[in-house]
Design a protein around this nucleic acid. Structure first.
Lengths: 221, 221
DNA sequence: ATGCGTACGAAACACATGTTTGAAACATTT
DNA sequence: AAATGTTTCAAACATGTGTTTCGTACGCAT
């Protein structure tokens, strides 16, 4: 067995199917994608899908699992140090929180190949399938980490509902850029999310996060 | 022809089809919904859909149009006075902006029947169909109004990219509550979005908006 | 009552779609 | 070389799905 090569067209059928399936599931959803579409894009026979994965639903689940692995890898590689040794002081926690959200922007809005991943996750949120649990386990972990940082930065109780809700609101700022991408780009009269626009968005979100933390710190009763 | 009655189960076939279609399109998407599902829920024959609307795609378009009408009505009824005579002073604009976003929370995450509407719109954002233009016309109008208020509240240029982007980030806070509803409710250990939770979310978002405006006002170069 | 256009319902039609089949090609081992 | 297990392919199969057909009932003006 050869070692897994770099992401390219010269992979094995199984990898090509997974890659094509992620593209299509992310773009058109589970029901909007046919196995013939996937087979055509992956340049394999239709039967190869049943052969390698058992069926369409099992393939979808495999895609979700690979997505979770990919995301968890990217994020953990960049913020592992924050989550392992969370800063105790408020200033350090705030800096860590900003870095955490900044990483989220990079991962979700940045790489073009993350578009399909982000959309698949968002779809799964709106319309959970049996594969939802796989995603939720990861999201829950990230949300928990964000909540710890937010609580440390503001002095709020990490268990308080306002704290946990506040973290979701921060994340919402990032998600909207992928969800409403079409509308955002049109209103901004931009053809695509290039590096410059991403830098602007990141700076704005970072400033907003700082403002939210400050407001939460002052606003606590 | 009888006058259109109140929303109930005793409507004509056309209204029942529209209602059932909104339910299913919102929950499962266009490709995830079959005309037999719709006909079954609406308690009409399958042929009634082609008869009344021409086909599945035309029905979907009709649903989108009715959704736009419904939303535009709800929102305009509550914020028309803000959009017609936008406050010139910063303080008034800030109050108007808060009311604007607050209305958005009420409309999007408030009424249970808006769940299907919100989801249909979000789906259309992620995967635009020919009916997207109908929605975009409305969204563009609202985003433009929000941008005017935001600009007036902060002193920023309404045409600047940062201003328009900032409005999307505010809206993202609201959207995330509907998109990631399942994850949010689980992390909050809540069974549903009741009035109390919505009040909390609204207060938090309002506080965040205020903080964002303040940050933007100070942060401008 | 008669004629006529509208609305409805059961069945059928044509095509799409997920899955399976059986044979051939390939790689690896004996 | 022969055997064995794995992978690929074209075709077929069963079901799902959007649409149409055609017969029937209803409402209403003549």
């Amino acid at each position: 067995m050869v070692a897994a090569t770099e992401h390219s067209a010269a992979e094995g059928p199984r990898e090509r199917i997974l890659d094509a399936a992620l593209d299509l599931f992310g773009e058109r959803g589970l029901t909007g994608t046919t196995v013939r579409d996937i087979a055509g894009r992956a340049k394999v026979n239709i039967a190869a899908i049943s052969y390698h994965f058992g069926g369409k639903d099992e393939l979808y689940r495999a895609v979700v699992e690979s997505v979770v692995g990919s995301i968890a890898g990217r994020v953990r590689a960049r913020v592992a140090h924050l989550l392992e040794r969370p800063p105790a002081d408020a200033a350090g926690a705030q800096a860590a929180l900003e870095e955490f959200i900044g990483t989220m922007v990079d991962v979700i809005v940045g790489p073009p190949e993350m578009r399909r991943v982000a959309r698949l996750i968002i779809r799964e949120q709106m319309q959970p399938t049996p594969a939802f649990e796989i995603l939720y386990a990861m999201l829950s972990q990230f949300h928990g980490a964000g909540t710890q940082l937010f609580a440390a930065a503001t002095g709020l109780d990490p268990a308080a509902e306002e704290t946990r809700l506040g973290v979701f609101l921060m994340i919402g700022q990032v998600l909207v850029l992928r969800i409403a991408e079409t509308a955002v780009l049109r209103r901004l009269e931009r053809p695509a999310f290039d590096a410059a626009l991403m830098g602007k968005a990141k700076a704005l979100i970072r400033r907003n996060v700082r403002a939210m933390v400050a407001a939460a710190r002052e606003g606590r009763t």
